Simulated assay, not measured.
Amino acid sequence: MNREIIDISDYTILLEEASTENNLIDSCFFDEPVIAIAFYGAGDVGLTVKFDGKTKEFHHTKGMVLSFYADNMVEFEHHVSKLKSLQCLVIATTIRNIDKLPNGEGQFLEQYLYQLIHPKDHYVEGPVFNMSPEMFQLVEQFFSNTYEGKIKMMFYKSHITALLSHYFGQLAKQQNTKLNTSQIEKINLAQEILLSDLENPPSLTELANRIGTNINKLKIEFKAQFGVPVFKYLQNERLKKAYSLIKNEQKTIQEAAWAVGYDSLGSFSNAFEKKFGYRPSQV
């Protein structure tokens, strides 16, 4: 279990990473009331939030962004297993620091996360959605960088600003295209269908039929929920899976490409470099 806590510009940054061959429950509390945004990377760890006799569970956290208010009565449990590792970045601040935050970020918190600034319970949940590809890549870089000392702090500061910019930008887009509960359930089902078979995903027509909608609504609502079109989302998930296969499971580039549905090694390498900034042979 690796845990790093850094204080930057009235934010507290928490980086957590863990993998295990056996089941592991990592439990934590905050010492004082906080407003926080948790960004979950590639691990897909299970999360349970406990407060005042209540329980909230998240079974699939890969790529999830969770905003919340929590006081010291709230317990967070991460359920780590061989297939569900932990990779989580938390950006937290306190209500008394809202006006001190840089770049007008306090105003954005007030505008987009009003219910967290004015909580009515020990735990208040804000928007929960999936990261855009740009956000996911930024989160990955927090865990993969090898900088030290002042250079590392400079790196963290710049990436926190970039990550929050994408976060508030995605919230703004979602407010312009709000989905009701039924629409969100259908689009989340579409996501599960895509992720269940990255090698041979359904066509847009088949996907729309399986979730009970039409192609036009699928395109509009999927982008509203996840920030990117269906095909772009699928491509990003394929490449992230391939990256994990090469780095963590020592698969060859050819094996990784085939596993996520690429027949052409050249097309795979070009798409990989466009997303990550380097060739798969450099992983």
Rank of each mutant, 00 (worst) to 15 (best):
Q137P: 00
V128I: 13
P119T: 09
Q115N: 14
E134L: 08
P119V: 11
D121T: 07
Q137S: 10
Q141T: 04
G126V: 04
L109A: 01
L47I: 13
I98T: 03
F51A: 12
F136Q: 13
D121C: 02
G46W: 05
K56V: 14
G41F: 07
F76M: 07
T146D: 04
L116M: 14
F108A: 12
N103L: 14
F51K: 05
G43A: 07
Y114T: 03
K50D: 08
T48Q: 09
V45P: 10
H122I: 01
Q115S: 15
T146L: 11
F51E: 14
F68E: 02
E134N: 09
T146E: 08
Y147A: 04
L89Q: 06
T48S: 15
N97C: 01
G104T: 10
N145G: 01
V65E: 06
K62S: 15
L113G: 01
V80P: 02
Q111W: 04
L86W: 05
Q87M: 13
Y112I: 03
G126H: 01
K150W: 04
H159N: 15
G106W: 09
E148I: 14
V45Q: 06
D121E: 15
Q107V: 07
G149L: 06
D71N: 15
G53W: 12
V128T: 14
Y123R: 02
L83V: 04
I91L: 15
Y69C: 01
Q107W: 06
Y114E: 11
T55K: 15
I95N: 03
L66S: 02
E140G: 07
K62T: 08
N72K: 12
F142H: 09
P127Y: 03
V139F: 11
G41K: 07
K56F: 09
V90I: 15
Q141S: 10
N97E: 09
T48V: 11
P127I: 02
F108W: 11
D71F: 06
Q111A: 14
L113R: 07
Y112P: 00
K62A: 14
F39A: 04
I37H: 01
T93N: 05
H79V: 05
